[in-house]
Design a protein around this nucleic acid. Structure first.
Lengths: 110, 110
DNA sequence: TTTATATGTAACTTTTTTGTTACGCATTTT
DNA sequence: AAAATGCGTAACAAAAAAGTTACATATAAA
């Protein structure tokens, strides 16, 4: 795992990482607590978490020898913003459908 | 490229594929027209497009020997829905911040 | 009917990702 | 202080993804 990924979409490409985010959304969890819920080894989970952290999806709260993961909105916003770039396209599509219906389909008689 | 990917997030993991979507959002394009805008070979682009199609991001309109790519909302919706799963988390976060401010920070004197 | 164009696909090679084990280093616990 | 716990990281191995070239096929143009 090239743990230095910073790309939000690449970070989400892995099913396991998405599951980690779901888990952490339910409640703050330590790295080991997360690893217990997966089949893969703890070091592997550790790397996934680093990737998620670098991509801005989670923050780490250090507490003694434990490190708790909490969600970070940054990564989510980045994805959301990208999705929003297409907003214009869909509304244009919708308007052209609307227009088509208005000119080609007779209105329902009440 | 294991062209059979169906996972929306995996489909978006590749920068080039995201760029293809942006291009197609601007205007309907044939496979070759898309390939001309990339450094990679046409067959590589062809595979990317198949992946995007399988993941529900684009539809193909066949027209003679050409194949035009147009956006398909399905893939985008899938991503959007996943992002929305975390809605609850952020509103809870917000409410707890609100609550903190209300109980710990004095109101500004007008 | 030749020739050119648009595209798909198979067979590989190269790069990236993902995962593992082994080990090190703090911080708790006993 | 000694043992146990929580975690990071280096050094691989295995698997998946991405790209290439070579070739096949169908449609359009000459």
């Amino acid at each position: 795992m090239s743990t230095e990924t910073v790309d939000a979409f690449q970070a989400l490409a892995d099913r396991g990482r998405r599951e980690i985010l779901m888990m952490v959304a339910k409640e703050k969890r330590s790295i080991n607590a997360i690893a217990e819920n997966f089949d893969i080894s703890r070091p592997a989970v550790s790397k996934h978490i680093k990737i998620l952290q670098n991509a801005g999806f989670i923050n780490i709260e250090e507490k003694g020898r434990e490190r708790y993961c909490v969600l970070n909105q940054d990564g989510f916003s980045e994805v959301q913003q990208w999705i929003n770039l297409f907003e214009e396209y869909w509304t244009a599509q919708f308007r052209s459908l609307e227009n088509y219906l208005a000119t080609n389909v007779p209105p329902p008689k009440k």
